[in-house]
């Protein structure tokens, strides 16, 4: 057995034990997670969430799912993965708590008008207008109302997880709903002769 495996087994054993040994392991893990999150979350999101607060929730999840830990990674990596997800989920909840879905998706029309930029060469402007009108058409004909709403919410800045929270759905389902919409729009554009590689040239 490698040292790494031994270490991982030791974490699981200590956390599954009782008494002071378990308490020590929990304290040690708490310290590690706080240390990791203090760096990673503060760097990106400032002090929107306090690592000490989210680590308590994360620990509950970790202890609850100890049995599902399959040992395919180090234990501490696995624990950090859970803690990171809990922390970001809480960060998103706080950051978007005042944003309602209605304020972003107030009507069912996703209108793709963009102001004409006089510095853009005429030819590119025509290409642009063509792509946009094709896209507009596809959005209306190929997407379901739910897909249009989800795309609007996404473009309005709401992360998938927050869209799910507001629509009583779950993240997986919303991701799939949006992914399916993306696939439909992409193949629709391709049928119309617009390939993804052209986007950058036209909209640079």
């Amino acid at each position: 057995m490698t040292t790494e495996n031994a270490d991982t087994d030791d974490w699981v054993r200590r956390l599954s034990s009782s008494g002071p040994e378990r308490d020590d392991a929990i304290a040690e893990l708490t310290q590690l997670l706080v240390r990791g999150l203090s760096r990673s979350m503060a760097n990106r999101y400032g002090n929107l969430v306090q690592p000490e607060d989210v680590v308590q929730d994360a620990l509950l999840k970790i202890l609850d799912s100890l049995e599902t830990f399959a040992g395919r990674s180090r234990f501490t990596t696995w624990a950090m993965t859970i803690a990171t997800r809990v922390a970001i989920s809480e960060m998103r909840r706080k950051r978007y708590q005042d944003v309602s879905l209605d304020s972003i998706t107030s009507d069912d029309n996703l209108s793709l008008d963009i102001a004409t930029d006089p510095s853009t060469p005429g030819e590119t402007q025509i290409d642009r207008a063509n792509v946009l009108s094709t896209l507009q058409e596809l959005i209306q004909t190929e997407l379901s109302a739910k897909q249009r709403e989800a795309i609007q919410a996404l473009l309005g800045g709401l992360p998938v997880e927050e869209i799910a929270r507001r629509t009583g759905s779950n993240r997986n389902a919303v991701y799939k709903l949006i992914h399916d919409a993306r696939v439909r729009l992409k193949s629709g554009l391709e049928r119309a002769g617009v390939i993804a590689e052209d986007f950058n040239a036209i909209f640079a």
Binding site: L32, R35, G36, L37, S38, R39, S40, M41, N43, R44, T76, T77, M80, T81, A83, T84, A87, I88
Partner: peptide
Amino acid sequence: DVLIEGLKAL
């Protein structure tokens, strides 16, 4: 990305 940063801090 956040996970990678956090792991680097361990």
